[in-house]
Amino acid sequence: MSSRSPEPPPPDDTHFGFRSVSESEKTPLVRGVFRSVASRYDVMNDLMSGGIHRLWKDAMVDWLRPRPGWQVLDVAGGTGDVSFRIQDRLDGQGEMYLCDLTWDMLSVGRDRAIDQGRLHGLHWICGNAETLPLPDRSMDAYTIAFGLRNVTRMDQALAEARRVLKPGGRFLCLEFSQVVLPLLDRLYDLYSFRLLPALGGMVAGDRESYQYLVESIRRFPSQEDLVQRIAANGLEQVHYRNLSGGIAALHSAWRL
């Protein structure tokens, strides 16, 4: 299979991996992917990245520098990896709001929280990044890790991030991106398209969902293009850092 992305979908459509679908179809399709993989999601993350995703998430929280007393929204928070890290930095002084599209992912996260004795300061929200069920100017920080590429209307999700942030609030996005090292990009391409779907089939019993995840990474904007998208939706002082040669990237911005 070629790693080249197909032509952009028609204006009234969007993409689901390399497929063109109507906007009304994409959210149910994405929800189906994460319902299918929820129980094996954390195991697959470790296997797919060799555990490096943990270092990326640590880097994200280090750059965020959460402060006690903050109200933090973690969108596409899934099974709690980023939220738990932030909660530890808040040291019992502040509130975490973990929002995800599927109850299946949230259920895994809540079970993990209970097992770790995290009984207070976590709020679980099943919701869409494009229509967040939260008041205007209510959050000190907004984080999203490996979720922005799955939304149907990225600009709407970015506008919602700005809406819920307080003036002076921080936006931070961790996402797979475009590899910037010539040799690494070829190796990563081979690994992604040949091995990851097969691994998903063996471990999670769902090759198709991991094929979609690989394709969605290829369709995601480049680092510089995402800077422009974030800025166009009203967030300011946008910067990014490449991680692991651009396999992933962190984008930071502020609501001023």
Rank of each mutant, 00 (worst) to 15 (best):
F220W: 10
T152M: 05
R219C: 15
R219I: 02
R218E: 04
E215G: 01
L190N: 00
Q87P: 01
M202C: 13
A231K: 12
P133L: 09
E130S: 08
M48H: 08
T102V: 06
L73V: 14
H239D: 14
Q116Y: 06
R112V: 02
L29V: 05
P28K: 13
R170N: 03
G205M: 03
H251A: 01
E175P: 01
G147P: 09
R65E: 14
R255G: 00
R54W: 04
S36G: 11
V75E: 01
M139I: 10
G234W: 08
P133I: 13
P10H: 07
A161V: 07
S252M: 12
Q178N: 06
Q156G: 00
L122H: 14
S20Y: 07
I52V: 14
A145N: 07
D115M: 02
A204N: 05
A248R: 04
P8Y: 11
R118D: 01
I52F: 15
D185N: 03
A76H: 08
M139P: 02
S2P: 15
L101E: 04
P197H: 06
R149G: 09
V72G: 03
R4M: 12
A231M: 04
F193E: 06
V180E: 13
A157L: 13
R19N: 13
Q156K: 14
S36Y: 00
L226N: 08
R118E: 04
A113G: 08
V75K: 05
L47Q: 08
T14Y: 12
E236K: 05
R162F: 03
Q71N: 09
D136E: 15
L165I: 09
C99H: 00
Y188T: 08
R65S: 12
L174N: 03
G147Q: 14
L187E: 02
Y41I: 07
Q178P: 00
T143Q: 05
S24H: 12
D140H: 15
R162E: 11
P133M: 09
S2D: 10
S20I: 03
H251P: 01
S2F: 01
A248Y: 00
T152L: 08
R65T: 10
L250W: 05
A161S: 15
S244T: 15
V227G: 01
L174S: 07
R207D: 01
L90D: 14
V75R: 05
P68C: 04
D58R: 15
D13W: 14
P167F: 03
V61P: 04
W70Q: 14
Q211H: 12
I86Y: 02
E215L: 03
L181T: 11
T143S: 15
F193K: 11
L256N: 10
L250G: 08
I114G: 02
G17E: 10
Q237K: 12
